[in-house]
Design a protein around this nucleic acid. Sequence first.
DNA 1: TCATAATAATCAGACGTCTGATGATTTGTC
DNA 2: GACAAATCATCAGACGTCTGATTATTATGA
Lengths: 166, 166
Amino acid sequence: MAGDPLDDLYDRPGFMIRRAHQIAVSVFLAQTDDLGITTTQYGILVVLRHRPRIDQITVARLLGLDRSTTGMVIRTLEEGGLVARVVDPADKRRRSLELTQAGSDLLDRLAAPAERAVAQLLAPLDPAERPVFLALLRKLTGAFDATSRVPLAKGEGGPAPSSEAI
Amino acid sequence: MAGDPLDDLYDRPGFMIRRAHQIAVSVFLAQTDDLGITTTQYGILVVLRHRPRIDQITVARLLGLDRSTTGMVIRTLEEGGLVARVVDPADKRRRSLELTQAGSDLLDRLAAPAERAVAQLLAPLDPAERPVFLALLRKLTGAFDATSRVPLAKGEGGPAPSSEAI
DNA sequence: TCATAATAATCAGACGTCTGATGATTTGTC
DNA sequence: GACAAATCATCAGACGTCTGATTATTATGA
């Protein structure tokens, strides 16, 4: 078992991150099994709840996703009756997005399974290790928000998120 | 900026892990740009170097990948002349896999870019933070090796990885 | 005003990822 | 030896992901 040359591969950050992603998706799907939704769809629903009448390019930027990917997933959500999409009369390039009642209801029902998924994912770490891990993960990913090929634009497209800092 | 309800989403482990994966793949592709290979293909080439004449189901288990995924990627590698695939005469169900000379050469040329990708990925963390992050990531992912839907079978299919620990 | 950006959306193409089903081959058991 | 079970590979189908090109619409500036 010791000295396997593949251990070098297993210890690479990229390999472990791929594995962590695979596990996180799998755990989420297992916890939400009967609700038939994916992690990407869930993220879009959450954005739509907090940014009603947003367009899909802005959704993509808020999630750090590609425009094509986002458009495709949103079409799936629309076909499933979870999202309503209408051409913005003020700017006919845009399609104004909004959760339907079914989408909002589903999001409510997802809250508990999503929390269980987080708990299950972090369960292998000691309680004291969890904030350390998450802080380092936040530091690493946050450093690439502006520079990666698919940048992430937090706080965009919103109803002026409290421009007064009090 | 403060108090954005989307911050709750951005702080979720699953969201940050997805983002980390996206960044890791992007950094790898940028560093190896002219060599035209993906992270998945790279992992398979590494396995093949250390496990010659392996079959593709075992490759899948060693990488924690799906059998179909692995078969598809290996076909791409075969079409690119990087991997040779022949029916095992002793067991006609199996296709014995091996790196070609071109595959081996490419793997040699990938060593430096792959190392640069690791360095770039971890650059946002302080040097002292990096082993902490990687140890926690290893602990989290390792806990799911046996239980996830796509388990990872380290140390399988090899030439008895030095059963003597010296 | 009118030609030129810039922007939102979509499409084409490529790759990765999983599930579930099917066919071919080997192994195990009686 | 023959039937059942396990195993390797592939296919069909669905979803996610990105790049690059194209179309429709709006904004900009000389």
